[in-house]
């Protein structure tokens, strides 16, 4: 059993290393703005990967993960700006604090069915960021908190773009989340989660503690969201109520589902969508030279239609859709291959 676990950890390490290489290569090739987009994608990915596990493996709906991101964001902002903690420590603390909030909620959540949990998390997404407005002295009110941008260390050279440094920090954070979750989903805990999702009664009969397993999934996803929020604070240098509206919670939830839940690639597609879609839809709207109201609202309309169409076309999300597509292509290829063989004259 232990050997198996070690093999798993090695596999996870290899996956993370490959991802790190890819990320580093891409970030070194692109310009400053693209680096910032990579950084955005990385913090979204950290938040999404936990949510994806919660929905895909835990079978739970959370419409409030933006609130956990807010917790992580405020934790980092307070620790870095007021207490002058180093970034790594602040990010770890942000993850821990969000996990704690997640544990409180998760204990209750484990008893709740789909829409009831959705209701609780939705209210959480509305309620939690507003606390910042109630305590303006510590939390900065509507304007929130600002931190100084982290300066690239001197060994990277004086001309190293600060945006790339932000991308690397966020990328490392996202990789840490990836390593952790990759390991978890391939361990006993992951199997227990899947067993509970598929049949609570059967899982309980097999010795799974249903409530505890689901609470753990909730805590994990909250911790990931907190890390994502903390990374967002590093990337954007801000933590404030307006940055974590309900709309954010709904957006990451929708992205996670469209990317494909319960799959690490799904979280990747979801993060890519969150970063790229707003710019694409904005560019489309701009290129059509429409009147003010139409042009302003067109990106939103495109987003709305995309949510609907994506669910109708790929009920299992992009990742499942791609798998289907590649299956189709393989079949098409092999059949054509056989045709070619049987008919060499062509």
């Amino acid at each position: 059993m232990r050997a198996l676990a070690r093999v798993g950890a090695v596999r996870a390490a290899v996956v993370v290393l490959l991802a790190a290489l890819a990320f580093g290569a891409v970030s070194s090739l692109v310009g400053e703005y693209r680096d910032l987009q990579l950084a955005d994608g990385a913090y979204y990915f950290a938040a999404l990967i936990g949510l994806s596990v919660l929905i895909g493996f835990g079978g739970k709906i959370s419409l409030g993960h933006g609130a956990f991101m807010a917790v992580g964001a405020y934790a980092v902002a307070l620790l870095v700006a007021d207490e002058h903690w180093p970034l790594v420590g602040a990010l770890a603390a942000a993850t821990a604090v969000s996990a704690l909030v997640g544990a409180v909620l998760g204990a209750a959540a484990s008893r709740l069915q789909g829409p009831y949990l959705a209701g609780v998390t939705l209210t959480l997404a509305v309620a939690l960021p507003q606390i910042g407005n109630r305590f303006p002295e510590t939390l900065g009110g509507e304007n929130g908190l600002v931190i100084d941008p982290p300066a690239p260390p001197s060994f990277l050279g004086s001309s190293f773009p600060p945006q790339r440094y932000l991308a690397w920090i966020a990328g490392l954070g996202a990789l840490a989340a990836l390593f952790f979750i990759y390991n978890m989903t391939r361990s006993g805990a992951g199997r227990a989660l899947r067993a509970v999702r598929d049949d609570e009664v059967a899982a309980a009969l097999c010795g799974c503690h249903v409530g505890r397993t689901q609470t753990v999934a909730f805590v994990l996803s909250a911790a990931c969201a907190g890390l994502g929020g903390g990374l967002a604070t590093v990337v954007l240098q801000l933590a404030q109520p307006g940055a974590f509206p309900l709309e954010l919670s709904l957006r990451i939830f929708a992205a996670a589902v469209i990317g494909g839940v319960g799959s690490l690639w799904g979280a990747f597609w979801a993060a890519a969508l969150l970063v790229l879609l707003p710019n694409w839809s904005h560019d489309i709207a701009q290129s059509l030279s429409l009147s003010g109201n139409v042009a302003a609202n067109l990106p939103l309309a495109i987003y709305g239609v995309m949510l609907i169409v994506a669910m109708l076309l790929w009920p299992g999300g992009i990742q499942a859709g791609l798998r289907q597509l590649s299956g189709l292509l393989k079949r098409a290829y092999s059949s054509r291959h056989s045709v070619t063989q049987s008919n060499p004259a062509k």
Binding site: L250, F253, N293, A296, G304, M306, L307, I308, A310, M311
Partner: peptide
Amino acid sequence: VIVTLGLLVFLEALAGM
């Protein structure tokens, strides 16, 4: 849930237009 969210976003954009 996602479809109704999509409808929400689309209708609000439509009204704005």
